[in-house]
């Protein structure tokens, strides 16, 4: 079957099979930043933004994306680079496999709450697992990022 959706501002009309998962559709369409880590909505690697909400694309049937507006990290490259500055300065990238989902969720957090406390940052991002860093460096980087954004504002 065929669906229509907007990805990163562009129109797409892909053919999908009924059981297709949105994560696989996005990767097939070339949006390789979307990663699969668990397939059971536990790790946050496949985080995308659908109709202004951060969702886990491993648990969304592709058919449900019909008529939706979707963003992947490919659509937020400037923002990603800005956030990356802070993460890179802490060495918080390590293997990087969880990074796209993490950065997507940071973008979602910033939209919802542009001035979060450190506790709110940790709680919002709790579903983004990382096995390399032990989270401290991500925590320091995000505290600095949001402090910096406040200074800019």
């Amino acid at each position: 079957m065929k669906i229509r959706l907007k990805i990163n501002g562009k129109d797409f009309a892909p053919h999908i099979y009924p059981s297709m998962i949105l994560l696989d559709l996005l990767r097939d369409l070339g949006f390789k930043s979307v990663k699969r880590g668990c397939g059971t909505t536990n790790c946050g690697l496949c985080t995308i933004i659908m109709d202004n909400k951060s969702v886990l694309s491993c648990s969304v049937p592709a058919a449900r994306a019909d008529g939706k507006e979707i963003y992947t990290l490919e659509g937020f490259q400037d923002k990603a680079a800005e956030i990356a500055e802070f993460l890179a300065d802490e060495g918080a990238d390590q293997c990087g496999f969880c990074a796209p989902g993490f950065v997507m969720n940071v973008i979602a957090l910033e939209k919802e709450n542009p001035n979060p406390t450190e506790k709110e940052i940790d709680e919002y991002l709790v579903g983004n697992l990382c096995r390399c860093t032990g989270y401290m460096s991500q925590h320091r980087a995000m505290a600095r990022y949001f402090a910096h954004k406040q200074k800019e504002a």
């Binding site: 390789k32 930043s33 990663k35 990290l73 990603a80 890179a88 300065d89 060495g91 990238d93 990087g96």
Partner: peptide, 21 residues
Amino acid sequence: KPVRKKDAFALLTGRPVYAED
């Protein structure tokens, strides 16, 4: 020194660099 990883920006901005990508 706290030198940034050479691949930091590629990884953090979601560039296709892993085997499956």
